[in-house]
Design a protein around this nucleic acid. Structure first.
Lengths: 160, 160
DNA sequence: TTATAATAGTTGCAAATGCAATTGTTTCAG
DNA sequence: CTGAAACAATTGCATTTGCAACTATTATAA
């Protein structure tokens, strides 16, 4: 039987916990910032990912954001109602919709991006530039392996 | 106006995205494992955190898990119904409940922990031991600063 | 001592989100 | 060409979760 499991956790388990904690703390901080602009973190993510000129497919967004397609549909519903984005039927494939930023969407994106970026600078500010670059390269390595090992079994989300 | 925002993201913004992606991928992988044991990742986290002997307060769990107190209440409701944990009133403070693992809870925890750990070894397996230790120290640094900068403004969750 | 504040836990409610099923469109094998 | 399979998006439904309000208990101050 495992005793004092809290103390004897392995490196892998420590990564696991750290990533969970960091994600939650980061997200809580985001909410504090984004609330001022009436945005959720998911909406902000859409705002930053969208191409304002030609737009993106919902499917593409769902792939990039690693969330279910239905989630994107509803996210875009909200943001369209708020006049931040607009859907345009794709002329080359009548099944698909392209979503692009409206001028208001672009304006809001730029304003929020700046505020969010400043906040991130504070929140990651205790790392040196070198540490930041190192961390990024390690995290990229982790991400690619996670994607790989997950993809082996099935799709990430919305598998059918 | 920010053009090609996807390409020119700053180190801070890259951290931001990486951590989001890694969290989602990690969680999706967890679900694949834990489904076999009829556990959600939150339930598994409770299982691993609980002290089987003297138990923990719900409040403590909520602090550790960085989630709202009501979330813990309902998690414990589920797990108590599944005979994995039990509530015991704290004799020293009649407001508080202590939650401890049942024998079934301990048995399940040990079985699942092993499976989960093996899976983590694969999923983090492309990092060398040295890289893993390095990553942990960097992540710990990030976590502590996130906690700090968040705490300055208010509580993490369930603020009233 | 007593009234007020703080604390632990619970409950109601709304929002976010994944999965399954559905609709309309395209692709491809025969 | 035609029917079957694949695909993009949407909708219904269930689950998870945070916030606010509430109850019961303890701590503090006057």
């Amino acid at each position: 039987m495992l005793d004092n499991i809290n103390k004897l956790c392995t490196p892998a388990h420590r990564h696991y916990r750290l990533i969970h904690d960091i994600y939650v703390l980061l997200d809580a901080g985001d909410r504090n910032i984004l609330r001022q602009f009436d945005l959720t973190s998911s909406q902000y993510r859409v705002l930053v990912l969208l191409d304002p000129i030609q737009g993106e497919r919902l499917m593409t967004l769902s792939d990039w954001m690693l969330c279910a397609r239905s989630t994107v549909t509803r996210l875009i519903d909200q943001m369209e109602a708020a006049n931040l984005v607009c859907r345009v039927g794709d002329p080359e494939d009548r099944r698909a919709q392209r979503v692009a930023l409206t001028p208001q969407g672009v304006a809001l994106r730029d304003k929020v991006y700046e505020a969010h970026e400043n906040s991130l600078l504070t929140r990651f500010g205790n790392l040196t530039k070198a540490e930041q670059e190192l961390l990024i390269s390690l995290l990229e390595k982790v991400r690619s392996n996670l994607h790989l090992t997950l993809g082996e079994s099935e799709e990430v989300l919305d598998s059918e």
